[in-house]
Design a protein around this nucleic acid. Structure first.
Length: 635
RNA sequence: GCCCAUGUAGCUCAGUCGGUAGAGCGGCGCAUUCGUAAUGCGCAGGUUGUGGGUUCGAAUCCCACCGUGGGCUCCA
């Protein structure tokens, strides 16, 4: 007999050699039926796994948060099994993990999958699911596994095995399909309640564009049809928040074939951008930032000196003026280096914070362009901070605080942070990198911030802290970044006069908070679903006259509100009140001010708030006062 | 850049078997003067992304290019 411990702490006695499934059975027949896999001493295992005396055992059912991941992983196997059945032994299998939104599997096949092929695969998957085929685990020595995969012609599996450090590896069989896999899996294919193959895309093996392009099929799976349907509904709702769609509907910006990746901002879009910039300037002035502006075109030699030519050339645009090579700036730093160097500096000026709203151009691969979130020209809310090495940590912490303050102003609280360390392709000494990285870590620690680490993902001149914000499709976009840099001051031979009267090398921080005004606007549009708060709204109020007979009064009100500094429009179309209200609601204007004879007689307006409805009459002066209050509350 | 899909009126989308393009919304005009999410009638609007090819005939079939979408990779 052995004894295991259940999650509530109670002991359970079982026969020798009992499995996780036996534990579920001993607890109750309901649990035995619902059991998908288990956890023994915190490690996920199949129901068939044996339990040892004294082990802590937990039974995982579909109610457990980790169950969905296992289900999806198992569904990926079901899909691979279907592909094997339909396409035969010519298919090479790469990897098939569960991901946040479902799962995928990468295949090396002769012909790419067509949408019709996906339907056939779905059908075959349904067959496999209805047959309730069990997932069977087996173990093998790694060397034997490599031989076996070589024999089977599964080169990708061989590569995976060569990177595994364990001596024993596990395989899972689902009918005729056997796959290298850590597990665990659900007991059999019938547990897949509802699934859907969502898309097919090319993907490079291990993300390496020098390697072969595989065919990736994406899908998603849930325990019930209801869950699947509500997920699909969620996607539809998210599509309504898509900034590309709202940008067109709200007349904020457009894109044109004549300039792919280069956004055109319409008057309403510029209003929002200007409001963002006004706020940005206000905060930065308060924090002691100075503002600069540097040229877009600069001689090629400058980019050699900065190191961009060696490390960033592929992303840069070049041109020629009077037989001289010029580059379009992809970053603002070299220009600001020249400004720094145009005069002498003392340690007393430090930290010297120089901001620039600089328009940069970067040649991004055509396939990655995405609305405002990935463009080829954008305005960075940049700043270069020159300081003493011992000021680095405090300055970084100061910028972190600034980022959180500014994101907070826009109600963006779903921000996650990554620390990126030295890449292979970099400049500067080991010592400099170690110092800079330590300063960033300390600054994060001083603010008790949780963050992930991205090894080797730093800029070529220094480590960085990135602030990521998520879009409507749950894709994460980098906005803020703080980058320490010892290398650039070196390359430009920057100096300051220290307390000792001698020349020293300053340390520099590159930082953006919004990142790119364009991207940030895209993120904001999705965050607000197009319904901007009052202070950002392109049109803050629409005046809706009930009929032409009150047009004079409507114009008078329009004038008064505009004179008070608010963005107001008059809807003087020959339309019904209902139509005008509808139009204003669709364009998400915060306030609708209905005026008729009643209002004209009393110098009032009838106020309607976006998505709230009629809130009753108010004097024009009161409305202006309300608007002012709203601005100051939001500010 | 690579893989797949896709491109018809300003927007959203029909368009059968290859037979010469249609709707709603929007725009314009006229009528209507209306009290909180669509007033009615009429009119205009298209070299079907671009360029080739097949065909008596192409929105439709084929090729190339451009754009867009979803990915891979890269980054603000």
């Amino acid at each position: 007999m052995i004894t295991v411990r259940l999650p509530d702490g109670s002991p359970l006695e079982l026969a020798d050699g009992a499995s996780v499934g036996d534990v579920a059975g001993a607890v109750g027949s309901g649990l035995a039926k619902a059991a998908l896999f288990g956890k023994v001493n915190g490690t996920a295992v199949d129901l068939t796994a044996a339990v040892e005396d004294g082990a802590a055992v937990e039974i995982i059912t579909k109610k457990s948060p980790e169950a969905l991941e296992a289900l999806r992983h198992s569904t990926a196997h079901v899909m691979a099994a279907a592909v094997k059945k339909l396409y035969g032994s010519g298919v090479r299998f790469a990897i098939g993990p569960a991901i946040d939104s479902g799962f995928y599997y990468d295949f090396d096949v002769e012909e790419p999958f067509t949408p019709e092929a996906l339907e056939k695969i779905e059908e075959e998957m349904s067959n496999i699911i209805s047959e309730a085929i069990p997932f069977e685990r087996s173990e093998l020595d790694r060397a034997a596994a490599i031989d076996r995969m070589k024999e089977a012609g599964q080169g990708y599996k061989v590569e995976l095995l060569e990177d595994i450090t364990d001596d024993r590896v596990s395989f899972y069989r689902l009918g005729d399909f056997v796959d290298l896999c850590r597990g665990p899996h659900i007991p059999d294919s019938s547990k897949v309640g509802a699934f859907k193959l969502t898309s097919v895309a090319g993907s490079y093996w291990r993300g390496d564009s020098s390697r072969k392009m595989l065919q990736r099929i994406y899908g998603t799976a849930f325990f019930s049809k209801k869950d699947l349907d509500s997920y699909l509904h969620l996607l539809e709702e998210a599509a309504k928040r898509d900034h590309r769609r709202l940008g067109r509907e709200l007349d904020l910006f457009s894109f044109h074939e004549e300039g792919p990746g280069f956004p055109f901002f319409h008057p309403k879009g510029v209003v929002v951008l200007n409001e963002i910039v006004d706020y940005w300037r206000k905060v930065h002035r308060r924090e002691g930032y100075l503002e600069t502006r540097t040229p877009i075109l600069l001689r090629e030699e400058l980019w050699h000196q900065s190191g961009h030519w060696d490390h960033y050339k592929d992303n840069m645009y070049f041109t020629e003026i009077d037989d001289q090579g010029y580059a379009v700036k992809p970053m603002n730093c070299p220009g600001n280096m020249l400004i720094y160097k145009s005069g002498q500096h003392s340690y007393r000026e430090f930290p010297l914070r120089m901001g620039e709203l600089g328009l940069v151009h970067r040649h991004e691969l055509s396939g990655v362009l995405h609305g405002l979130l990935r463009v080829r020209s954008f305005t960075q809310d940049d700043a270069h901070i020159f300081c003493l090495p011992e000021q680095l940590e405090t300055e970084v912490a100061h910028v972190i605080d600034l980022c959180f303050e500014i994101y907070g102003r826009f109600g963006l609280d779903d921000v996650h942070i990554e620390l990126s360390t030295r890449p292979d392709d970099s400049i500067g000494t080991d010592e400099q990198w170690a110092l800079a990285t330590k300063a960033l870590e300390n600054a994060l620690a001083s603010r008790n911030i949780d963050y992930g680490v991205q090894p080797g993902e730093g800029a070529f001149y220094g480590p960085k802290i990135d602030f990521h914000i998520t879009d409507c499709l749950n894709r994460s976009w980098q906005c803020g970044t703080i980058q320490a840099d010892f290398a650039m001051p070196e390359r430009f031979d920057l100096e300051y006069i220290g307390e000792d009267g001698r020349r020293h090398r300053p340390v520099m921080i590159h930082r953006v908070v919004l990142g790119s005004l364009e991207r940030f606007l895209g993120v904001l549009i999705e965050h607000y679903g197009g319904a901007f708060p009052f202070w950002l709204s392109p049109v803050q109020a629409v005046i809706i006259p009930v009929s032409d007979t009150v047009l004079d009064y409507a114009r008078q009100v329009e004038g008064e509100i505009r004179a008070a500094g608010f963005r107001v429009e008059l809807d003087n179309r020959s339309e019904t009140v209902g139509n005008k209200i509808r139009q204003a609601e669709i364009s998400k204007v915060p306030y609708m001010l209905v005026v008729g004879k009643r209002e004209a007689d009393n110098h009032t307006v009838s106020v309607r708030e976006h998505s709230k409805g009629d809130t009753g009459p108010a004097a024009v002066a009161e409305v202006i006062e309300k608007f002012r209050r709203e601005i100051s509350q939001e500010a």
